[in-house]
Design a protein around this nucleic acid. Structure first.
Lengths: 129, 129
DNA sequence: CATTTATTGCAACATAGTTGCAATAATTTA
DNA sequence: TAAATTATTGCAACTATGTTGCAATAAATG
Protein backbone atom coordinates (compact mmCIF):
# COMPACT_ATOMS: atom_id res chain seq x y z
CA UNK A 1 0.00 0.00 0.00
CA UNK A 2 1.12 3.50 -0.77
CA UNK A 3 2.51 5.71 1.93
CA UNK A 4 -0.15 7.84 3.53
CA UNK A 5 -0.06 11.62 3.37
CA UNK A 6 -0.72 13.70 6.48
CA UNK A 7 -1.68 17.34 6.63
CA UNK A 8 0.05 19.19 9.37
CA UNK A 9 -0.02 22.79 10.47
CA UNK A 10 3.48 23.42 9.15
CA UNK A 11 2.78 21.89 5.77
CA UNK A 12 -0.45 23.84 5.41
CA UNK A 13 1.37 27.04 6.33
CA UNK A 14 4.04 26.45 3.68
CA UNK A 15 1.45 25.71 1.02
CA UNK A 16 -0.57 28.75 2.01
CA UNK A 17 2.52 30.91 1.79
CA UNK A 18 3.46 29.59 -1.63
CA UNK A 19 -0.08 30.00 -2.89
CA UNK A 20 -0.37 33.59 -1.63
CA UNK A 21 3.01 34.61 -3.00
CA UNK A 22 3.34 36.24 -6.38
CA UNK A 23 6.88 34.97 -6.66
CA UNK A 24 8.63 31.67 -6.15
CA UNK A 25 10.25 31.48 -2.72
CA UNK A 26 13.51 30.10 -1.44
CA UNK A 27 13.78 27.81 1.56
CA UNK A 28 15.19 30.66 3.60
CA UNK A 29 12.42 33.05 2.67
CA UNK A 30 9.80 30.50 3.64
CA UNK A 31 11.52 29.66 6.89
CA UNK A 32 11.80 33.30 7.91
CA UNK A 33 8.22 34.13 6.95
CA UNK A 34 7.13 31.27 9.17
CA UNK A 35 8.70 33.39 11.88
CA UNK A 36 10.73 30.33 12.67
CA UNK A 37 7.77 28.56 14.21
CA UNK A 38 9.10 25.28 12.95
CA UNK A 39 12.51 23.85 12.38
CA UNK A 40 14.70 24.62 9.38
CA UNK A 41 14.91 20.93 8.61
CA UNK A 42 11.14 20.57 8.72
CA UNK A 43 10.79 23.21 6.02
CA UNK A 44 13.25 21.31 3.82
CA UNK A 45 11.32 18.10 4.34
CA UNK A 46 7.94 19.70 3.68
CA UNK A 47 9.26 21.14 0.43
CA UNK A 48 10.65 17.77 -0.56
CA UNK A 49 7.29 16.19 0.16
CA UNK A 50 5.34 18.79 -1.78
CA UNK A 51 7.54 18.09 -4.77
CA UNK A 52 7.18 14.35 -4.27
CA UNK A 53 3.41 14.82 -4.25
CA UNK A 54 3.55 16.88 -7.43
CA UNK A 55 2.14 19.94 -5.68
CA UNK A 56 5.24 22.09 -5.97
CA UNK A 57 8.35 22.22 -8.10
CA UNK A 58 11.90 23.34 -7.67
CA UNK A 59 13.39 26.15 -9.74
CA UNK A 60 17.11 26.74 -10.12
CA UNK A 61 17.90 30.27 -11.24
CA UNK A 62 20.77 31.13 -13.54
CA UNK A 63 23.05 31.79 -10.57
CA UNK A 64 22.23 28.48 -8.94
CA UNK A 65 19.80 29.86 -6.38
CA UNK A 66 16.94 27.45 -5.68
CA UNK A 67 13.31 28.57 -5.38
CA UNK A 68 10.04 26.75 -4.92
CA UNK A 69 6.64 27.35 -6.47
CA UNK A 70 3.32 25.60 -6.58
CA UNK A 71 2.32 23.84 -9.77
CA UNK A 72 -0.63 26.12 -10.49
CA UNK A 73 -1.58 25.47 -14.06
CA UNK A 74 -0.27 21.98 -14.08
CA UNK A 75 -3.57 20.28 -13.41
CA UNK A 76 -3.82 16.81 -11.96
CA UNK A 77 -1.27 15.40 -9.62
CA UNK A 78 0.70 13.01 -11.80
CA UNK A 79 4.36 13.76 -12.27
CA UNK A 80 5.19 15.52 -15.50
CA UNK A 81 7.82 17.69 -17.06
CA UNK A 82 7.31 21.36 -16.33
CA UNK A 83 7.98 22.63 -19.79
CA UNK A 84 7.26 26.22 -18.98
CA UNK A 85 9.90 28.86 -18.48
CA UNK A 86 10.90 30.69 -15.34
CA UNK A 87 11.30 34.42 -15.35
CA UNK A 88 13.61 36.19 -12.93
CA UNK A 89 13.25 39.94 -12.67
CA UNK A 90 16.60 41.66 -12.23
CA UNK A 91 14.94 44.61 -10.48
CA UNK A 92 12.47 43.21 -7.97
CA UNK A 93 14.08 39.78 -7.84
CA UNK A 94 10.75 38.06 -8.34
CA UNK A 95 10.59 34.63 -9.94
CA UNK A 96 7.50 33.48 -11.76
CA UNK A 97 6.41 30.69 -14.06
CA UNK A 98 5.37 31.87 -17.48
CA UNK A 99 3.10 29.54 -19.36
CA UNK A 100 4.95 30.01 -22.60
CA UNK A 101 5.75 27.06 -24.83
CA UNK A 102 9.46 26.44 -24.89
CA UNK A 103 10.49 26.29 -28.52
CA UNK A 104 12.09 23.09 -29.71
CA UNK A 105 15.87 23.07 -29.74
CA UNK A 106 17.77 20.93 -32.21
CA UNK A 107 20.57 18.97 -30.59
CA UNK A 108 23.59 17.52 -32.39
CA UNK A 109 23.35 13.95 -33.69
CA UNK A 110 23.13 11.18 -31.12
CA UNK A 111 22.15 13.54 -28.32
CA UNK A 112 18.90 12.62 -26.60
CA UNK A 113 16.90 15.28 -24.80
CA UNK A 114 15.09 14.34 -21.61
CA UNK A 115 14.02 17.69 -20.24
CA UNK A 116 14.80 21.35 -20.49
CA UNK A 117 15.26 24.12 -17.96
CA UNK A 118 14.82 27.63 -19.27
CA UNK A 119 15.37 30.71 -17.14
CA UNK A 120 14.93 34.19 -18.56
CA UNK A 121 16.39 37.16 -16.73
CA UNK A 122 15.03 40.61 -17.40
CA UNK A 123 12.36 43.10 -16.37
CA UNK A 124 8.95 41.87 -15.32
CA UNK A 125 5.78 43.68 -16.36
CA UNK A 126 5.52 45.53 -13.05
CA UNK A 127 9.12 46.76 -13.07
CA UNK A 128 9.24 47.65 -16.77
CA UNK A 129 7.67 51.08 -16.72
CA UNK B 1 44.79 52.85 -14.95
CA UNK B 2 43.25 49.40 -15.22
CA UNK B 3 44.14 46.73 -12.74
CA UNK B 4 46.98 44.56 -13.92
CA UNK B 5 46.59 40.85 -14.46
CA UNK B 6 49.17 38.41 -13.14
CA UNK B 7 49.73 34.87 -14.23
CA UNK B 8 50.44 32.57 -11.36
CA UNK B 9 51.08 28.86 -11.16
CA UNK B 10 47.69 28.21 -9.58
CA UNK B 11 45.82 30.21 -12.17
CA UNK B 12 47.66 28.52 -15.01
CA UNK B 13 46.88 25.12 -13.49
CA UNK B 14 43.17 25.92 -13.26
CA UNK B 15 43.05 27.15 -16.84
CA UNK B 16 44.99 24.11 -18.02
CA UNK B 17 42.58 21.83 -16.22
CA UNK B 18 39.53 23.53 -17.68
CA UNK B 19 41.02 23.50 -21.14
CA UNK B 20 41.93 19.79 -20.96
CA UNK B 21 38.56 18.77 -19.57
CA UNK B 22 35.79 17.57 -21.84
CA UNK B 23 33.23 18.68 -19.29
CA UNK B 24 32.61 21.77 -17.24
CA UNK B 25 33.98 21.42 -13.73
CA UNK B 26 32.76 22.45 -10.31
CA UNK B 27 34.88 24.32 -7.80
CA UNK B 28 35.22 21.13 -5.76
CA UNK B 29 36.31 19.05 -8.72
CA UNK B 30 38.97 21.58 -9.63
CA UNK B 31 40.18 21.89 -6.08
CA UNK B 32 40.52 18.14 -5.67
CA UNK B 33 42.23 17.66 -9.02
CA UNK B 34 44.75 20.25 -7.98
CA UNK B 35 45.55 17.69 -5.26
CA UNK B 36 44.90 20.52 -2.85
CA UNK B 37 48.17 22.21 -3.75
CA UNK B 38 46.51 25.54 -3.21
CA UNK B 39 43.82 26.82 -0.93
CA UNK B 40 40.09 26.32 -1.46
CA UNK B 41 39.61 30.08 -1.33
CA UNK B 42 42.29 30.65 -3.93
CA UNK B 43 40.43 28.43 -6.37
CA UNK B 44 37.26 30.45 -5.81
CA UNK B 45 39.15 33.67 -6.43
CA UNK B 46 40.89 32.36 -9.53
CA UNK B 47 37.55 31.30 -10.98
CA UNK B 48 36.07 34.70 -10.19
CA UNK B 49 38.98 36.35 -11.91
CA UNK B 50 38.77 34.15 -15.00
CA UNK B 51 35.13 35.12 -15.34
CA UNK B 52 35.94 38.75 -14.76
CA UNK B 53 38.51 38.52 -17.55
CA UNK B 54 35.99 36.89 -19.85
CA UNK B 55 38.06 33.72 -20.12
CA UNK B 56 35.60 31.44 -18.34
CA UNK B 57 31.91 31.41 -17.56
CA UNK B 58 29.73 30.04 -14.82
CA UNK B 59 27.05 27.44 -15.52
CA UNK B 60 24.17 26.71 -13.16
CA UNK B 61 22.62 23.31 -13.79
CA UNK B 62 18.94 22.59 -13.38
CA UNK B 63 19.49 21.42 -9.81
CA UNK B 64 21.42 24.56 -8.87
CA UNK B 65 24.88 22.99 -9.07
CA UNK B 66 27.48 25.43 -10.35
CA UNK B 67 30.12 24.49 -12.92
CA UNK B 68 32.80 26.40 -14.75
CA UNK B 69 33.98 26.21 -18.34
CA UNK B 70 36.28 28.17 -20.61
CA UNK B 71 34.75 30.38 -23.26
CA UNK B 72 36.16 28.41 -26.17
CA UNK B 73 34.29 29.61 -29.19
CA UNK B 74 33.56 33.00 -27.79
CA UNK B 75 36.39 34.83 -29.51
CA UNK B 76 37.79 38.08 -28.20
CA UNK B 77 37.79 39.06 -24.58
CA UNK B 78 34.94 41.54 -24.30
CA UNK B 79 32.05 40.56 -22.07
CA UNK B 80 29.04 39.19 -23.90
CA UNK B 81 25.99 37.07 -23.38
CA UNK B 82 26.68 33.38 -23.77
CA UNK B 83 23.66 32.53 -25.81
CA UNK B 84 24.55 28.90 -26.24
CA UNK B 85 22.96 26.08 -24.30
CA UNK B 86 24.45 23.82 -21.69
CA UNK B 87 23.96 20.08 -21.90
CA UNK B 88 24.02 17.92 -18.80
CA UNK B 89 24.25 14.18 -19.38
CA UNK B 90 22.18 12.23 -16.87
CA UNK B 91 24.43 9.18 -17.26
CA UNK B 92 28.03 10.38 -17.16
CA UNK B 93 27.18 13.66 -15.47
CA UNK B 94 29.20 15.61 -18.03
CA UNK B 95 28.34 19.21 -18.76
CA UNK B 96 29.21 20.77 -22.08
CA UNK B 97 28.46 23.88 -24.08
CA UNK B 98 26.63 23.22 -27.32
CA UNK B 99 26.96 25.91 -29.91
CA UNK B 100 23.33 25.75 -30.85
CA UNK B 101 21.34 28.91 -31.40
CA UNK B 102 18.77 29.32 -28.67
CA UNK B 103 15.43 29.89 -30.38
CA UNK B 104 13.66 33.11 -29.62
CA UNK B 105 11.01 32.93 -26.91
CA UNK B 106 8.04 35.26 -26.94
CA UNK B 107 7.40 36.84 -23.55
CA UNK B 108 4.10 38.34 -22.41
CA UNK B 109 3.55 42.05 -23.05
CA UNK B 110 5.67 44.48 -21.06
CA UNK B 111 8.26 41.85 -20.18
CA UNK B 112 11.78 42.72 -21.24
CA UNK B 113 14.31 39.96 -21.80
CA UNK B 114 17.93 40.57 -20.84
CA UNK B 115 19.45 37.14 -21.10
CA UNK B 116 18.53 33.50 -21.18
CA UNK B 117 19.90 30.42 -19.49
CA UNK B 118 19.07 27.12 -21.13
CA UNK B 119 20.07 23.77 -19.68
CA UNK B 120 19.15 20.53 -21.41
CA UNK B 121 19.31 17.27 -19.48
CA UNK B 122 19.56 14.02 -21.39
CA UNK B 123 22.01 11.58 -22.92
CA UNK B 124 25.19 12.85 -24.51
CA UNK B 125 26.52 11.36 -27.74
CA UNK B 126 28.99 9.13 -25.94
CA UNK B 127 26.42 7.71 -23.50
CA UNK B 128 23.62 7.30 -26.05
CA UNK B 129 24.57 3.97 -27.61
C1' DC C 1 -9.80 5.74 22.65
C1' DA C 2 -5.87 2.90 21.22
C1' DT C 3 -2.83 1.86 17.44
C1' DT C 4 0.01 2.85 13.65
C1' DT C 5 3.37 5.38 11.50
C1' DA C 6 4.11 9.95 9.12
C1' DT C 7 6.03 13.97 10.75
C1' DT C 8 8.70 16.91 13.70
C1' DG C 9 12.68 18.84 16.48
C1' DC C 10 17.19 18.49 17.74
C1' DA C 11 21.95 17.65 17.28
C1' DA C 12 25.42 16.94 14.34
C1' DC C 13 27.35 16.93 10.13
C1' DA C 14 28.65 18.09 5.08
C1' DT C 15 29.19 21.21 1.34
C1' DA C 16 29.38 25.78 -0.84
C1' DG C 17 30.78 30.33 -0.77
C1' DT C 18 32.62 34.87 1.48
C1' DT C 19 35.65 38.22 3.98
C1' DG C 20 39.70 40.34 6.39
C1' DC C 21 44.40 40.45 6.91
C1' DA C 22 49.14 39.56 6.90
C1' DA C 23 52.60 37.16 4.01
C1' DT C 24 54.12 36.04 -0.61
C1' DA C 25 55.49 36.70 -5.17
C1' DA C 26 54.61 38.50 -10.18
C1' DT C 27 55.48 42.64 -12.66
C1' DT C 28 57.27 47.09 -13.34
C1' DT C 29 60.68 50.53 -12.83
C1' DA C 30 64.95 52.31 -11.82
C1' DT D 1 69.59 42.90 -11.56
C1' DA D 2 67.67 44.90 -7.46
C1' DA D 3 63.99 47.65 -5.35
C1' DA D 4 59.33 49.04 -5.31
C1' DT D 5 54.54 48.17 -6.23
C1' DT D 6 50.57 45.72 -5.62
C1' DA D 7 48.05 41.47 -7.30
C1' DT D 8 47.65 37.14 -5.38
C1' DT D 9 47.77 33.66 -1.86
C1' DG D 10 46.99 31.15 2.64
C1' DC D 11 44.85 31.06 6.82
C1' DA D 12 41.27 31.68 10.09
C1' DA D 13 36.77 32.53 10.77
C1' DC D 14 32.37 33.02 9.30
C1' DT D 15 27.63 32.55 6.75
C1' DA D 16 24.42 30.04 3.96
C1' DT D 17 22.59 25.85 2.32
C1' DG D 18 21.42 21.15 2.56
C1' DT D 19 21.45 16.27 4.74
C1' DT D 20 21.00 12.38 8.15
C1' DG D 21 19.85 9.68 12.44
C1' DC D 22 17.03 9.23 16.20
C1' DA D 23 13.79 9.82 19.78
C1' DA D 24 9.45 12.35 20.63
C1' DT D 25 5.11 14.00 18.78
C1' DA D 26 0.81 13.88 16.66
C1' DA D 27 -2.25 12.83 12.33
C1' DA D 28 -5.21 9.40 10.61
C1' DT D 29 -7.36 4.87 10.95
C1' DG D 30 -10.03 1.38 13.22
Amino acid sequence: MTKQVRNTAAKTAVMEMLSQSSTALSHGEIYQSLAETCDRVTVYRILDRLIEEGVAHRIALSDGTVKYALCEQCGDGHHHAHSHLHFNCVLCGGVSCLEVEIPHVQLPRKYKMHDVSLVVNGLCAACNS
